[in-house]
Amino acid sequence: MSDTSNGRKGLELEETLKEYFWQAGYFAVRGVPFRLDDEDVTDVDVWLYERPAALNRRRLIVDAKNKIKPKAAERLIWARGLQSALNVDGAIVASTDKRPSSHRLSKSVGVTLLDGDAINKLAGAAKLRVADQYSSEEYDGLFKAVDAARRSVEWRTALLGARSSLLTNFGIHSANMALRVAGFFAEQAILAAPKSDQAQVALRGFYSTSAYAAIGLDFVLADLAFQSHEDRRASLITGVRYGNTNVREALMPIRTAIGLVRQHASNGGSIAAQVERGFDEQAARVPAEIIAEYVARLSATDGLYSVARELERNAFKIDIFHFDALSAEARSLLGVFLDFHGVSREKIAHAASGSFNKTSAAAEGGSLFSEDAIRSSKGRSEGP
């Protein structure tokens, strides 16, 4: 069997595993790059995020190999090492290997093994073949095509940057990264010709990176669960503004640098005061309150997680849903992110669909443009 055939079967297995875990309730992403110092080291075949309870979050990585000559022992040890490097909660290896020795090794290293029998069952499960969804290769190809037309790599780079942050900076850092990229794709959707292919792809990027931001914020909420609403709100403001929910830790490097200027520069006191004032003014211009107020209310619900699954699923739909077809919760979250970036909700709603049916949206729970839609997510959640 050729390497090409092996490669194709491997990609099909990854897609099957992604769908299996998605239907089991996970948030699943394929092909997540692992980068160190802006250099690609490897990638994770399938990355999983789970919210099993209000206070619990789990991240897992899946290594999938569908080859005639499986090397399960090698993959088990590799996956265990990558699990440790990424500091995630578990690792799974899917291999055609069926040897008892491989199962013994999987137990000794603490990595779950899906062997050949399990893979054959998954491959034969009709419900795991979803015809209305793009595969990950097809989805990424949409962004490559836009870049090719623009003679650029900007869109693909932005998407992979947000995806990569799920591995190395998950939490408030990945949420901030995804928020920036979501703002980029929202602006690109507006700049593109209405109803054009480019506008459609930009909307997909906006949905997907907004989903990444939502699960990053959901992960942060687990650590803030026992804080009061006001304390949660303050921590989230600090996190969105400075990249750390602890205000002392967030500001320590800045205050240290300002202290060095004050101590060693000529006219250090005056210069340090100017730098400090300028920094505080610039930070204050980041409208973190918009996101913090919305997210702080959701700590006891699975609202962010449910909306993230809905948005990611919709981003991959061949016939993508537009704003008026999304749930009220999804429209609310997207509206908050758009407000954060100062992007017009109405222009986004028109960008890819060309029209917006306010009547049908209101009937489903509130218009994208209404404050009621933003408030509607309080105490509510809706599955994908």
Score class of each variant (00 low, 15 high):
A192I: 07
Y242R: 13
A148L: 11
D197M: 10
I190G: 01
Q198W: 02
P194G: 09
L224C: 03
R248K: 14
R241A: 08
R248F: 15
T209R: 02
I190S: 01
A158C: 07
L160D: 10
V153I: 11
S152K: 10
H229T: 14
R233V: 01
N246D: 15
I190E: 03
R262T: 09
E230Q: 14
L260V: 14
A213L: 06
F206I: 06
A149F: 08
G216Y: 08
A199S: 12
A257Y: 14
I237T: 04
I237H: 02
S152I: 07
G259T: 09
R151P: 00
H229L: 15
A199R: 02
G243Y: 10
D140P: 00
I258G: 07
A234P: 01
L260Q: 12
G183P: 05
D147W: 05
F206Q: 04
Q263F: 11
S165Q: 10
Q188W: 00
K144T: 13
L203W: 09
R241K: 15
A162T: 04
Q200D: 14
G141E: 12
W155M: 11
A265F: 15
S164A: 15
V181W: 02
F184Q: 07
F226R: 12
A202D: 05
A199Q: 00
S164T: 02
D223V: 00
A162P: 01
N246C: 08
